[in-house]
């Protein structure tokens, strides 16, 4: 970054805040573009899986469709329902998007590319993702609508339940890596055997639990009972129009991308190359993220929606016991000479 030195000298003490803001923009900007094109990818992929074409009218290959959708939502009137709690109704979408963006501060994109390299990175991520539920609860309550309220109660119970399984799955990762620092977790998966050094090999059951809990945590199909069109119209955001709705949408997809990044970092070796003779780079990271995101879309196109009691049963009676057992297994395994990671 030598070429930035003259600007740094020119700005003096104002340099640090300005440079930080620029770095934040460099993360949030591509993230928003990623979200926009993830929506297009979703419609295309699901379209192909169902023998349809998907959006293909706006721009070549439908590439301008996300922009058109965004513009449409921007132009729409925001309706605040009478009898709603106005302040909370307006704050709720912001409360969904804020933690979804704040969590990106500690995500390492490659060996050098990270905004803040904190030691408690994993804890920070867990704390930020657990805040996202407030937006949903407040939206459901402030809307003064039965459907929205039912959706918010379902979502709150679901997110709180699956957070436990997710947390335990991450406990095994931090046991294996012996660090909470996301960069160190990736570096712990570095070795001479490429793919075989990744934590997905010893922690495979946890990878599955984490992936499925991630789907549930982001309220995606087949766990989208919080929205459940056929049961409660559109769940917690049924009363939102225009940009309010768009912010919920952005939050949901930003969270999806975040979970995909975390899965790649924790279990799939982050920026490390899968074979030893190729160099490590951010390209691997993006490829792994794209694969996990494809899984999200695939799930949505394939599985029917879970019933609410089945969902709770899966979280509490299947995932949490499995993770607890695996924590003990990993702990015992690490004491033996057969722990190779």
């Amino acid at each position: 970054m030598e070429w930035l030195l003259p600007i740094q000298n020119l700005l003096g003490s104002a340099w640090l805040p300005i440079w930080t803001v620029v770095k934040i923009m460099l993360i949030v900007g591509p993230l928003m573009i990623g979200v926009a094109y993830l929506t297009l990818a979703e419609r295309k992929v699901i379209g192909w899986m169902q023998s349809r074409i998907g959006p293909n009218r706006v721009g070549y290959f439908g590439l301008l469709q996300p922009l058109a959708d965004g513009l449409k939502l921007l132009m729409k009137e925001i309706i605040i329902p009478s009898g709603s709690n106005k302040l909370l109704f307006v704050i709720a979408p912001i409360m969904v998007l804020m933690p979804a963006l704040a969590a990106w501060a500690v995500i390492p994109f490659s060996a050098e590319l990270v905004l803040t390299n904190v030691n408690a990175g994993l804890l920070y991520i867990l704390a930020m993702t657990s805040l996202g539920v407030y937006g949903v609860i407040i939206a459901g309550w402030a809307s003064n609508s039965k459907y929205a309220f039912l959706g918010c109660l379902r979502s709150a119970a679901q997110i709180v339940s699956y957070e436990i399984a997710m947390g335990f799955a991450l406990v095994t990762v931090l046991m294996a890596a012996q660090s909470l620092n996301l960069g160190d977790i990736v570096r712990g998966q570095h070795g001479q055997y490429g793919m075989l050094n990744w934590y997905i090999i010893p922690l495979f059951p946890m990878f599955i639990v984490y992936l499925i809990s991630g789907v549930a945590e982001t309220n995606r199909a087949p766990f989208d009972v919080a929205e459940g069109e056929s049961e409660i119209v559109a769940g917690f955001h049924v009363e939102y129009s225009g940009m309010g709705f768009a912010l919920f949408f952005l939050g949901e997809y930003a969270n999806m991308i975040l979970i995909a990044f975390l899965t790649s970092i924790m279990f799939l070796g982050g920026w490390l190359s899968p074979v030893p003779f190729l160099p490590d780079s951010i390209v691997w990271m993006l490829a792994k993220v794209a694969f996990v995101l494809f899984l999200f879309l695939w799930f949505r196109a394939t599985f029917p929606r879970y019933r609410y009691d089945q969902l709770m049963r899966l979280g509490w009676k299947v995932f949490i016991p499995v993770t607890l057992v695996w924590v003990v297994v990993v702990g015992a395994w690490m004491q033996t000479p057969y722990w190779l990671w």
């Binding site: 904190v118 030691n119 408690a120 804890l123 920070y124 867990l126 704390a127 657990s130 805040l131 539920v133 407030y134 609860i137 309550w141 109660l153 709150a156 119970a157 997110i159 709180v160 957070e163």
Partner: peptide
């Protein structure tokens, strides 16, 4: 005290208060 601070958010804000609000 970063651990305490984050644990406060994680446990009290992320879980206890959600159930409370509920």
């Amino acid at each position: 005290a970063e651990f305490l601070a984050i644990a406060l958010i994680l446990v009290y804000v992320g879980a206890v208060m959600v159930l409370f609000l509920f």
